[in-house]
Design a protein around this nucleic acid. Structure first.
Lengths: 225, 225, 225, 225
DNA sequence: GATGAATGAGCTTTCATTCAT
DNA sequence: TATGAATGAAAGCTCATTCAT
């Protein structure tokens, strides 16, 4: 708010936020929509709340996104893009396979735990039986690099006899996902079972080590950890 | 109210139009409600659709369950009861810990995969931040026996030096749940990633073996599988 | 309002108007809808105004009629029924063909002029290119008796050498309709052309005689009127 | 505003982006508006659709015409002007009255049948109870020459004893209009009554002869046609 | 117990209109 | 002159809930 960049006498066209700035308005709507759909699911989300949250009005949402369904699609795609981009920051090909695996698990664990928006959107999308993801042209396209990383990782580890042969990329990924996802997706029902908050940083730190351990044990050929 | 049937010693279940089978109607509504909430989530579910599906009418739902929120609570509790009862059919205490662990994993895996209603209800409840589970008096009560089973299992395995010491009941359960839950909860988004149906029996059978293996490796003290 | 039927101690279930009376509510809605669609056309009509006019509420309209389109269809069909029923009160077969023709023209002229609702609905329907009449199952069915009347009339008149041969039922009907319809359908634009009101009873009376004369001259074989 | 092109002696029509052809844009909007109001009525017409159809934008419509009401008025007046101008091409005063009558009927018949836009606009205007025609200064002014033609025609025919005395210009015009208008205005409802298309050229040609005959018989004094 | 008519608030969506650029 | 972002009111429609019968 009060922290303005020190000297900024640049003649660049400074737009007042929310006034006559198409790209900015569109982005504000999209950001708020991601949060709204994540918080309330598709049916529970309210167009009017999104408009208000974006300091826009309902008509703008329809102007930029067409309808509620398409706004939801845009929010889903934008969410996928964030995690898929993050994964591509890992340099899988050039470090020790065991280290690379650990790095991938920790990145996934931290991403899902730190920003639960993504988990919630994915849950909601699955509850709707993939209705929207199935319509997306960009989502399948975004998953390819991740699969490449996994296959490279497994191939190198198996070539170096560090990993055993009986694990494929799909099963490895699903194990990682399941172990990184469930305490976020089931945070509240687990919480009422075990009577503590599964978003606590201390618990997450300990759990992250266990997840790395469980996955690593499941794949390493040599028993010595 | 005041019009009671004169002599109720009639042996055959005579249905007078004004007094049909109350318990049966209630149960029909509950069954349909479980399916409806599972299929559409809370917001997406329709009271009228539930009434129609149960061959009842809207008024009956309010008569028996009060309102939509309380109907949802009843459906959630009924769902939990089914899996918790199923788990109690296992005789954890009297067989080999490794076998007992395998049996628990397989029961969980099969239950979640066979009837996705439960998974969907849990997902929905978590999306609503446990709003309803938190109000339930019976759900926490139902989880105790399960935790007892897990602690017994771990204690026996550790005493017999089959399991190592660094695993507690909570972490073990969450690993099992995560690995049995994710391909059901994320069936559609995983499906569009890997381009096949994650409810296929063949895939499930192979995956079940892998899950048993992953969990077992994570806990056994002796490397020999 | 204050005029109650004198003695009415009958135990018949007297319904208070507008309260818990399905058939009456449905009819009230339909009556108001006919007036509304006639007054404002389809697009210009307001569901809420119809509800208010019928002392009902919007939900009831959707309960009984489904949506605006289907309510409009019901109103259109009900309107057609009125004129088609009226026409069937004529006894074409048993009186002098010339008298029968005059009676049919006068009935048509009076019906269209007296209650302009029908004319306006027909106009609106044609502006929508028969979108709704084309969907109706009952409207085509209702026109058959009218065509029968016209054919009977012509056949008798031609057999008796009163009418000449070169006129068919279709052309006769369209002439009658055009001459009875236009001063109602174009009441306002004609009014501003000729600077008087075309709904004035005196003008209508004189015009009716002219229409009978024009149609009769167009069909009689013998020039003597 | 203040930025005028430096020297405007340029011979070629150079289009600067900020100053395109104003009159042409206005005319394009008006043409599209006539079609839109004719096709959808006033309420059903969309400002945005008109703008798109005219390759203009919404702002231009407000710039040139003020608002939707005034645009509709302009479209109505432009439509009236077309038929009134066409009628004035007839040389009523100098040919045989019977031939002149026939020419007027055929011109009216053809004009209404060939371009149904006019009929539809008139219908719509009457459905709105002449709300807009009543505001127009030019429409009443445009009808005067037509009435003059009709009075001249009748006077000459009656003077020459070809027409009988009991027909005035108003009734004659309304008969002509009704018989030329109804198969266009009621094209669709008549179509569903008689199961054929009333815009078919063959049918129109036959009908036109009948209309000329009906009107002529209604006015000629001597029975021999 | 059972029915379904009735209610009212709230939802998504549309649209004429304004205005900064 | 021309553009299109922005606004606000209102439209059609849905739905949880109540209540007379």
């Amino acid at each position: 708010m009060s922290s303005v960049p020190p000297q900024d006498a640049a003649p660049a066209p400074v737009r007042t936020p929310g006034k006559r700035n198409a790209a900015a308005t569109r982005q504000r709507i999209l950001d708020v929509a991601m949060a709204e759909f994540s918080a309330h699911g598709f049916s529970g989300s309210r167009i009017e709340r999104i408009a208000a949250g974006a300091s826009a009005n309902v008509g703008m949402i329809y102007h930029y996104f067409g309808n509620k369904d398409d706004l939801y699609l845009a929010a889903l795609e934008a969410s996928y893009k964030i995690i898929r981009d993050r994964e591509q920051t890992l340099d899988i090909a050039h470090c020790d396979p065991r280290q690379a695996l650990r790095a991938l698990i920790e990145l996934t664990f931290d991403f899902l735990a730190t920003d639960p928006h993504f988990v919630r959107l994915i849950m909601n999308e699955n509850l709707m039986m993939g209705r929207t993801a199935g319509r997306s042209a960009t989502i399948p396209h975004m998953t390819r690099p991740l699969l490449e990383q996994l296959r490279t990782l497994l191939a190198r580890g198996q070539k170096e006899k560090i990993f055993h042969r009986e694990m494929d990329a799909e099963n490895l990924y699903i194990s990682i996902l399941g172990l990184c996802f469930v305490h976020v997706s089931n945070r509240y029902t687990l919480g009422s079972m075990f009577q503590h908050d599964f978003a606590e940083p201390d618990w997450l730190a300990r759990r992250k080590a266990i997840v790395v351990d469980v996955v690593t044990r499941s794949i390493v050929a040599t028993p010595a950890k």
